[in-house]
Design a protein around this nucleic acid. Structure first.
Lengths: 223, 223
DNA sequence: CGACGGCTCCCCCGTGCGGGGGAGACGGTC
DNA sequence: GACCGTCTCCCCCGCACGGGGGAGCCGTCG
C-alpha cells in the first residue's frame, strides 16, 4: 500500500462552489496514480487555511465563486503563503475576462471545464512541473505533442497498472468479480487475475482489506 | 439477501457535452449501489440509438449541447421510443428558459448542476420512481427531509446493536470472522450471526459492501 | 407472568473468493 | 532477435463466506 503515496504524487486542492465539478475533477484526477486530491473547498474564502494545512502542489481554482472569487483567492494565496502552490484557474467560458484577471494576479495556468479528461490531467501535471499554460491552444498543443496516450508514461512507474487501478476502483464500489467483469467487458478469470495482482501489491489478504487500503490511502474517498 | 443489485438498480444514461460533468455525475451516481450509469453521450444527437440499446430508466440530459440540444433530444426520445425512459433535465442556471422548454417537451424532472450530490442522487431516484421534479425548491425540500447523506440515512435507519457495531468496526479494519471471534472472545458462529445482521441492516451483499457503507457514512473514518 | 430483543452457539449447504499454476497476444525495450 | 510487462483467458483446488434454519440464556418491559 506504500504504492502511490511514496513516490511524490502531485497533490491537488480543488476549489469550486459546485460539488459536481469537484466530483468530476476528483474522479478524473484520482484516476491517475501519480495525482492525488488533497482536499476540496467550496469557496475561495476557505483556501488559505486549507493550503496551509494540506500544502498542495496545485490548486485547481474556479474563477466565479459566491464569497471570494478565484482572482481574490489567487492574490490572497500568493500574498500570504510562502512557497505557494501552483494555481490552475478553472473556467467555463473560453474568453472569460476574469481568467485574464486571475492570470495577471499570478495564476500559473488556465483550464476549460469542457476539456477532455486527458487534457485536465495533463494541465495539472504540467503546472506542477512548473510549466505555464496560458491558453487553451497551448494545452492542446502540448497534449498532442505528448502523444496519443499521455497517461502511459506515468503509469509505468506506478505500482498499480491502469487496469488494476480500474479494478480496484470497482472493488471499492462493492462490485463482485462477475460484476467487474461485465463492467470492464472481460472474463471473470481476467478480473481474478487483476484482483490477485492488486491484493499482492497492496499487501491485502482479501478484497475487503484492499478496499480499506483504497480508502485509507485516499485512492477513493467517502462522500 | 438480494441486497442492492438484485432489486432492480436504476440505470442512467448521461448526456452532456462536457466530459467533466459526465465524470462528476458518474462519480456521484455510481457511489450509490442501487444506481448504475449505463452509458454516456456527448450530444443529444447520439441519444436515440443509445436509449434503444441500453434501455436506461433515466436519461440525465444537458440542455445546451452543440449539435442537438436537450429540448430537441427530449422530443426525439419521447416521439421515437416506445415506453421511453424518464428524462431528467440538467442545467447550469436557475432560471433557464430552455429548461421550461424542455419540460414542456415532456421532460420529467429538472436538476441544477450546482446541486449537492445527495440532491442529485435523490432526483434520479425520484424520477425513476415516477415522481416529477419540476422546481429546485421541491428537490431541496425532499433532500432536506431525506437527511444529510444517503449512506448516513441508511446507517441511522440501520440501528445496529452494540455487538453488531463492534463487529462492523473490526470488519472495517480488515479482520476475518475467525479473527473477530478471537478478538471478541466468542465463537465464529456468533460472529457470523452478527455479520449477517449487519449485512441485512445495511442492505449490503457482502462484508466489502458493509465496509464501504461504514466509510461512506462516517461510521469509520480514514487515517 | 409471558413476550420480546440481544447475545450466544449449532447444523447444513452452495458458491464466490483467492492461491497456484500455465499460456497466448501485444507492445514496448535492449 | 530476445526480453519483459501488461492484459487476456484457462485449469484445479481449498476454504472462508454468507444464507437458511434452529435453540438456549438472559435481561427488560408490558
Amino acid at each position: 500500500m506504500t504504492a502511490y503515496a511514496e513516490r511524490m504524487p502531485v497533490t491537488v486542492l480543488l476549489v469550486d462552489d459546485e460539488p459536481l465539478v469537484r466530483a468530476g475533477l476528483r474522479a478524473v484526477l484520482e484516476a491517475q496514480p501519480d495525482i492525488s486530491v488533497a482536499g476540496e473547498a467550496a469557496d475561495g474564502a476557505a483556501v488559505i487555511p486549507l493550503v496551509r494545512q494540506l500544502r498542495p502542489d496545485v490548486v485547481a481554482m474556479d474563477v466565479r465563486m459566491p464569497l471570494m472569487d478565484g482572482i481574490e483567492a489567487t492574490r490572497a494565496v500568493l500574498r500570504t503563503i510562502q512557497d505557494p502552490p501552483k494555481i490552475l484557474v478553472v473556467t467555463t467560458f473560453e474568453n472569460d475576462e476574469y481568467v485574464y484577471e486571475a492570470l495577471r494576479a499570478g495564476a500559473d495556468g488556465f483550464l476549460l471545464k469542457r476539456s477532455r479528461p486527458a487534457e485536465i490531467v495533463h494541465a495539472v501535471r504540467l503546472v506542477a512541473e512548473g510549466e505555464s499554460l496560458l491558453f487553451p491552444a497551448a494545452v492542446r498543443a502540448l497534449a498532442a505533442e505528448y502523444g496519443s496516450s499521455p497517461a502511459r508514461a506515468a503509469m509505468e512507474r506506478a505500482a498499480l497498472t491502469e487496469r488494476e487501478a480500474a479494478v480496484l476502483r470497482l472493488m471499492a464500489r462493492g462490485l463482485s468479480n462477475a460484476e467487474i467483469a461485465t463492467r470492464l467487458v472481460v472474463g471473470t478469470e481476467t478480473v481474478k487475475t487483476h484482483v490477485s495482482a492488486v491484493l499482492a501489491k497492496l499487501g491485502a489478504r482479501d478484497r475487503t482489506q484492499a478496499v480499506i487500503a483504497a480508502y485509507e490511502s485516499g485512492f477513493v474517498t467517502p462522500r
